[in-house]
Design a protein around this nucleic acid. Structure first.
Lengths: 231, 231
DNA sequence: GTCTATATAGCGATAGAC
DNA sequence: GTCTATCGCTATATAGAC
């Protein structure tokens, strides 16, 4: 299973007193409502109503709506980045019956990138105790809130980007840097839309609803895409 | 070139009197501002200010903000669908030195799907006379506004989806229906994010800015993805 | 067909009691 | 740490003059 539990609140510095339970309730409510109605479409009043708290509490804990939004993402992106990097690290360990030197590696790299994100996106819909950051919310931010991600959360994303970029460079040596970056971007789009994009027609839901099959299909698709000859 | 000109306003039923020029100005302004600040983030006041018109004009022509939003999309999606289908139709015509029966076909199908969308997404940034629906706006709607696309515009999308789905079924016979739908969805995500997604780091911009190279790279990536063995 | 003026409602944010 | 009350602002939408 996962090296980190993506479904739990962050470690919170050892002690875990329910001192800040209002704070947690606000984050949970915000996360759920943001995912459903979008960030702009969710008022502070709706959040506090849902959390059984008060408008002023948000400003007490987070200073502003913007501060709340940042916290909602920060508490998910940090474990996500850690989990991805941990799985990437674990890729080279087992000496298996690989066909070629880079062969097994590419699949493992992409799975390390894809699987934690799919698990994170799925967790909100699976009736677990607390609501979690859904894929929809991630997708919204990735498509709509560039400045936001570029700002506060860039460092964490940068590390993930760099480490996976380096691993991919070794795994797919026939691509130059520019082509590799383009394909990595394609992979991000594929992943984000698969987890958080809309399903226009019912058939799509059936084809994408099981998360284990989705991961396998994503990885197969992306491995082939990266292996494609350079343009 | 294109069979339809995606950069022009729709044919407007032969006559082209500037009778509704305020209406067109409102649509242009809305499209530009929606793409830049999001739909929720764009007020009617901002639109009318930008169009040199008045708040009441929007309600006169479109009834509500929602009506305006629908019109903004409808006037782009119809030519987009027509262009895609026209290019798909043109695929089987030239009897070339194909390696295998489905070989050339798959690339042509995917190019017919990808290229008109890239051209549409790019047109807004190229200083043409009128502002156009950018890829960012399409991406926003595809990720955030499922109900909206499922409703008013579903018919047009349904036809595109069906026709390309049938063509792909023939071109990639090793995939069953569910797997094909999943991969088609992957392709949509790749395309949408490549055209409308954010670029976290400068390097990505360099790798994705030239639209002709982008189309080639997208098609190469997607062809390989569809050719990947079934899971 | 386009305008000004305004109605009504909701927003984020803050002050201050407890 | 949590509450009520409210400020100041902007939103969508509409009525009615021209």
């Amino acid at each position: 299973m996962a090296a980190h539990d993506l479904t739990d609140r962050p470690a919170d510095d050892a002690r875990n007193e329910p001192q800040h339970e209002t704070r947690q309730a606000l984050l949970d409510a915000a996360e759920e409502l943001f995912a459903e109605h979008g960030i702009d479409g969710t008022s502070l009043r709706a959040i506090t109503r849902h959390a059984g708290a008060n408008v002023a509490a948000i400003h007490y804990y987070f200073g502003s709506k913007e501060g709340l939004v940042q916290e909602v993402f920060a508490r998910r992106l940090a474990p996500l980045a850690a989990e991805r990097l941990a799985r990437l690290e674990a890729c080279g360990e087992a000496g298996e019956e690989s066909l070629q030197p880079g062969e097994k590696t590419l699949e493992c790299i992409l799975r390390a990138f894809v699987e934690p994100f799919v698990e994170l996106g799925w967790s909100i819909d699976r009736g677990t105790s607390a609501p979690h950051l859904s894929g929809r919310l991630m997708a919204q931010v990735i498509t709509d809130r560039g400045d936001f991600l570029r700002g506060a959360l860039a460092a964490e994303l940068r590390e993930t980007f760099d480490r996976f970029g380096r691993a991919l460079t070794l795994a797919v040596p026939h691509l130059d840097r520019e082509e590799l970056i383009a394909r990595f971007n394609f992979a991000i789009g594929t992943l984000v839309h698969a987890v958080g994009g809309i399903r226009l027609f019912d058939e799509e839901n059936r084809a994408l609803e099981r998360s284990d099959a989705l991961v396998d299909r994503l990885v197969a698709f992306l491995v082939a895409g990266f292996r494609a000859p350079a343009c």
